[in-house]
């Protein structure tokens, strides 16, 4: 092994290159882009939150925790925080329940299922800005029917635009979000439903289980892992989701629909106050991390597997 021809050494090198470096060759473009466009800006964003970065008022520089202290005494921030909870919980619970119902329906047999499936999943493909506009228009008493229907049902006193009513406005984007999000839950839960072996239901039926018992004893336990992961990830996604609210209400009226992510966007986009926007963003990030940590702990407690 001591004497080797030069060619052999080269062959060896190329050989190790093949096994060690080759995957990085394929990954390089992806890694570079993610690092350059997401990771580096993320670090810069966190550093912004300790600086005064206002495009309209140049100067600034390092200000320590000033942005965070401002945040603490910012009434709008606390309103937005509260609205974030209402928005997220209101959206996710209806999306999930209605999505589960749809998945259960689609898991049965009926005529024209393929067409029906395409139609009910279509909202997922509708661009969010368009969903937002379409629902904003539906809530508009001039051209939309919803205020008139709600009045006829006695829910509204007169056909007014609920998006203009601080008490009710948040429900406008929530309804749009439910509409947009049902397909996601229906599709993922339907896939999980279809992976449950039919023999289990047959065995349970032979053992004398009622349809309700079959649902609670077989279907739900089998769906549980999928439900857990989709609800958890979707919660984070919805908390970050600003498009619908921004287009439908812009956070108004009187900040009644402002959530943290729209507050970040309007602070950055309209006020061009990047330092403060970054501080809000870091606060949102910390909240989401706490949420994820709680979930992980709960999971370790609850899941015995």
């Amino acid at each position: 092994m001591s004497r080797k021809a030069p060619g052999e050494i080269r062959a060896r090198r190329s050989f190790y290159w093949r096994y060690v470096l080759e995957p990085y060759f394929y990954l390089a473009p992806a890694i570079l882009l993610i690092a350059g466009v997401m990771v580096v800006p993320l670090v810069i964003g966190i550093s912004y939150s300790f600086q005064s970065v206002r495009l309209l008022r140049p100067g600034g520089g390092f200000v320590g925790l000033e942005n965070y202290l401002d945040l603490w005494s910012d009434r709008k921030f606390w309103i937005a925080l509260e609205n974030t909870f209402v928005w997220t919980i209101g959206s996710i619970s209806f999306q999930f329940l209605l999505g589960l119902g749809l998945a259960l329906l689609l898991n049965t047999r009926f005529h024209g299922k393929r067409l029906i499936q395409s139609l009910v999943f279509l909202p997922w493909a509708v661009p969010t800005f368009l969903s937002a506009l379409a629902w904003a228009w539906l809530f508009n008493p001039t051209i939309g029917p919803l205020p008139h229907w709600l009045t006829a049902m006695g829910i509204l006193g007169e056909p007014q635009n609920i998006l203009g009513d601080p008490e009710l406005a948040i429900w406008g984007p929530i309804v749009a979000n439910i509409w947009f999000g049902i397909p996601f839950f229906a599709i993922t839960l339907l896939a999980a439903l279809q992976s449950i072996p039919a023999e289990l239901y047959e065995a349970a039926e032979i053992d004398g289980a009622s349809p309700w018992q079959r649902f609670t004893k077989i279907t739900l336990p089998f769906l549980a892992p999928m439900i857990a992961i989709t609800v958890m990830l979707r919660t984070i996604w919805i908390a970050n989701f600003a498009d619908l609210i921004f287009v439908m209400t812009g956070g108004g009226p009187a900040n009644s629909t402002q959530i943290l992510s729209t507050y970040i966007f309007t602070t950055a986009f309209k006020k061009l106050d990047f330092g403060y926007a970054s501080a809000i963003a870091v606060a949102l990030l910390i909240l989401l991390l706490i949420y994820a940590a709680i979930l992980l702990v709960l999971r370790r407690r609850l899941v015995k597997i």
Partner: peptide, 21 residues
Amino acid sequence: AVMLVTQMFPLLMIIAPIYSI
């Protein structure tokens, strides 16, 4: 793991730095 994390954190967080860059 890094790729998964990029799917979770608020993308709006980097809207200001990206604008500057």
